[in-house]
């Protein structure tokens, strides 16, 4: 169970990737993409960057299974909160308004 020492060059490679992704996300944001692709691309890049940081800078790739479960659980609970709340917001107003049949 002795700890894993990540070689320095891995850190530099991850740093390079993070910088490149930052440049890409700024670059892509200039274009007016169709539908909601702007936010999709921006979030995809952000998630990729975050994943790189978690896996390498925070050593999760080399950590115990327990640590990995903890990380996944944290993200899972955030998703629960976002998705179940969204289940209310995206379906609001879908029901046709009830026509009043009270006495004229």
């Amino acid at each position: 169970m002795s700890e894993h020492i990540v070689p320095k060059k891995t850190y530099y490679a991850v740093f390079g990737a993070l910088m490149a992704l930052t440049a890409i996300t700024v670059f892509v944001a200039r274009f007016d993409l169709p539908w909601i692709l702007n936010i999709v691309v921006a979030l995809t890049i952000a998630v990729t960057k975050a994943t790189l940081v978690v896996l390498y800078f925070m050593h999760v790739r080399y950590s115990s299974r327990l640590t990995q479960v903890v990380v996944v659980a944290g993200i899972f609970w955030l998703v629960i909160m976002l998705v179940l709340t969204a289940s209310d917001y995206v379906t609001r107003g879908l029901l046709a308004p009830v026509v009043s049949i009270s006495a004229q």
């Binding site: 930052t22 944001a29 921006a42 952000a46 978690v54 925070m58």
Partner: peptide, 26 residues
């Protein structure tokens, strides 16, 4: 402390596109 520092970095990785870049294209 490193773990904490990287976490704070990750938060910013999301804040930057969501707040600064959200209207760049318009």
């Amino acid at each position: 402390s490193g773990l904490y520092w990287h976490f704070v970095d990750i938060v910013w990785i999301f804040l930057f596109p969501l707040l600064y870049l959200v209207g760049f294209h318009v």
